[in-house]
Computed example of a mutant assay.
Amino acid sequence: MQAWFEREWQRLGGGALVMLPFTILFMAATWLRRKLYAAGLLRAWRARVPVIIVGNITAGGSGKTPLVIAVVETLRERGWTPGVVARGYGRVPSTEHDPSGVVRVFPEVATPEHFGDEPVLIARRLHVPVFISPDRPAAVRALLEAVPETDVVVSDDGLQHYALARDVELAVVDGERRFGNGLLLPSGPLREPVSRLAGVDAAIVNGGNSDAVPAPRQFAMRLGKEVFVSFSGEERTPADFALAARGLTVAAVAGIGYPPRFFDHLGRLGVAARAFPFPDHYHFHASDLRMPGVELIVMTEKDAVKCTAFADERFWFLRVSAVLPPEFDAFLLERLAAARRATKAHGPEAA
Rank of each mutant, 00 (worst) to 15 (best):
M19N: 07
P21Q: 09
F22V: 06
T23K: 13
T23V: 10
L25V: 11
G40S: 11
L42R: 15
L42S: 15
R43P: 11
R46C: 09
R46F: 04
R46L: 02
A47Y: 08
P50R: 01
P50I: 05
P50T: 00
I52L: 08
I52W: 01
G55W: 06
K64C: 06
K64S: 06
T65Y: 05
P66K: 03
L67D: 06
I69L: 14
E73G: 08
T74C: 07
T74D: 00
E77Q: 14
W80Q: 04
T81S: 15
A86N: 08
R87T: 04
G88N: 06
Y89T: 09
T95Y: 03
E96K: 02
H97D: 09
P99S: 06
P99V: 01
G101S: 03
R104S: 09
F106N: 14
P107M: 04
E108R: 15
E108T: 14
P112F: 04
H114A: 13
G116Y: 01
E118H: 08
P119Q: 03
I122R: 07
R125Q: 12
R136P: 04
V140S: 03
R141E: 09
R141D: 04
V147W: 02
E149K: 01
T150W: 07
V153E: 14
G158Q: 03
Q160W: 10
H161Q: 03
A163E: 13
A165G: 09
L170P: 01
V173T: 05
V173M: 00
N181H: 01
G182S: 13
G188N: 00
P189I: 13
L197F: 10
G199K: 12
N206R: 09
N206D: 15
P216T: 04
P216A: 02
F219P: 12
R222I: 07
F228V: 12
V229C: 15
S230G: 11
P238V: 14
P238N: 15
P238F: 15
A244F: 14
A245E: 14
L248S: 13
L248A: 09
A252E: 15
G255P: 02
G255T: 04
G257S: 13
P259A: 06
H265Q: 14
R274V: 06
A275P: 14
F276L: 11
F278P: 00
P279Y: 08
P279T: 08
P279G: 12
Y282F: 07
F284N: 01
H285R: 10
D288R: 13
R290M: 08
P292Q: 12
D303R: 11
F310D: 05
R314W: 03
F317G: 10
F317K: 02
V320G: 09
V323P: 02
L324T: 08
L324G: 07
P326H: 06
L333C: 05
L336W: 11
A338C: 00
A339T: 00
A339E: 00
R340A: 07
R340P: 00
R341L: 01
K344C: 09
